[in-house]
Design a protein around this nucleic acid. Structure first.
Lengths: 149, 149
DNA sequence: AGCTTGTCTTGACTCATTCAAGATTACGCG
DNA sequence: CGCGTAATCTTGAATGAGTCAAGACAAGCT
């Protein structure tokens, strides 16, 4: 799911310098989906024990600006990052445990991009966050579907 | 657009105590759309100069939990609140100035609530944020539509 | 009016994220 | 292959939204 050479190539293609922190961040993101900065720092330090948190923050910012990673930040959560970009996909967030999963858009390529009334805005992206309960939390809450009051 | 008596009624109907900070917060929100906490504190203190910021935070949390106000938090922004609730509407956010406007959903009552693959989640809400440029920023950037390269 | 419980004040604190200054490193060039 | 320069990283401090906690206060029931 991505080698270092692969990541290096992606960086060069975007005109970015190839540095160890950036490679490690890309590697971390290819393993961890929707990781927060802290988790990314942890993963990165497994390879490069001495990276500064600042380098990770910088890398994430740079990679995000370059479009190589995507930042998402559901209400009430810290920033999270994912390396799946370019396709138009959305997220489901569990209200209880915060678990996040990917969701392909139901409407094809550019879903919902047509707001009924755009107030004069030039819209270029529609970001959708679905809220609900993940399978585990849903089960924990209503063990059987029979105890609904 | 809402008197104190009106707000008090809404609070009682939800089983909440009627307090000055809460009334002031509701009043502030009926004037300011999509205000952040700081703006709300400012507005509230115009009526009640001595409210603590904590009271405002508490009120906002309580009112949000009760469903009387809605919290939104676009990536990169602090928490913002609005009193328009119950209808299913979304937001456009300007990438440059952060301006937010309301958008009615294009798809009727429960838009996009059907994800193509819900990963087993029990989805109960779809939150949509449109990203783009507000009229002002769009104009500032491409004064005439003729200088497109 | 008095009681009880929820709410507010005050003030300290957390923690994600940013800022700043100087040391290092990537990489184009000779 | 080694240099120079600008970008990047390290270190360490600062910012700021939001939270926590203890005690004072007040809303609403009786």
């Amino acid at each position: 799911m991505g080698s270092d050479a692969d990541f290096a190539e992606r960086l060069r293609a975007t005109g970015l310098r190839v540095t160890k922190p950036r490679l490690a961040v890309l590697a971390a993101l290819s393993e961890l989906a929707h990781a927060d900065t802290d988790g990314i720092i942890g993963a990165v330090r497994r390879e490069l024990p001495s990276v500064s948190h600042q380098a990770v923050y910088d890398s994430l910012r740079t990679l995000t600006d370059a479009g190589l990673v995507r930042r998402i930040q559901p209400t009430g959560s810290v920033a999270r990052y994912e390396s799946r970009v370019g396709d138009n996909h959305h997220h489901v967030v569990c209200r209880l445990c915060g678990e996040i999963a990917d969701v392909d858009c139901a409407l094809g390529d550019a879903p919902c991009l047509t707001a009924s009334d755009d107030s004069g805005f030039l819209i270029d992206e529609a970001e959708v966050i679905y809220w609900g309960l993940c399978p585990d939390c849903a089960t924990a809450r209503t063990p059987t579907s029979t105890d609904l009051t």
